[in-house]
Amino acid sequence: MILAIDSSIGSTVAVVDPATDAVLADCSSDVPRGHAEVIGTLIERALDDAAVSPADITHVAAGMGPGPFTGLRIGIAAARAFAVGRGIPVVPVVSHDAAALEILTRDPDATFVIVTDARRRENAVSAYAGLDSGIPARIAGPELLPNTDDTEAYLAEHLSIARGPDGSGEIVRRSPTSQALGEQPHTTHISAGAIGILAARLLRRGAVPDLEPLYLRAPDAKVPGAVKRVST
């Protein structure tokens, strides 16, 4: 069984059966704060709902972001610590890929962007074009763009790069997540169930990525200048 944890937006924990990709439990709290408070209870409840014990868990899938740093880290820390406790591996997953999987499960050929709020008038953006062996084919991102940028143009540009001159004539279809500029809908929920399914598929393909937390932004820190004078 895979225990999947993501705290890139809200906090969500799921248990997924890797033999069937069935989501046995999916517990979440969409409050964008309080990740540290809820994470333990969510793990406990997910195990309970799925009627499995920690000993049944063989892998821990961790949503690596992008997401606001403070919250994002809590899920990753929990995933890694649970894995240490059981002596099992962590499977890192790009959180945007989980949101993309939900769209591609309904419409396997869709081309679209996933946009999440990165604060400071920026969005975290990833572009996708269909599925590749059940895993969303991410053709660009995740990266930060000013929230005034046209993500349709971003998608079109990367589609033509990804598909080369022959594919450039292909129609860019509107996806559920792309609308007119200015009212760009943001993905506001990442499903840990989808994180777990992706981990199962990555494991089956033997393609588990080596992935660090996707902060996408350097820490705010200024190297101090000269010592300020205090005398007047």
Partner: peptide
């Protein structure tokens, strides 16, 4: 520092659950 503390809190909870120990 709250952001620093939260890393330990998240990890400790998950470790305790995985081991079935009190926290």
């Amino acid at each position: 520092l709250s952001g620093a503390l939260m890393v330990g809190v998240g990890a400790a909870k998950a470790l305790a659950i995985s081991l079935g120990t009190p926290l």
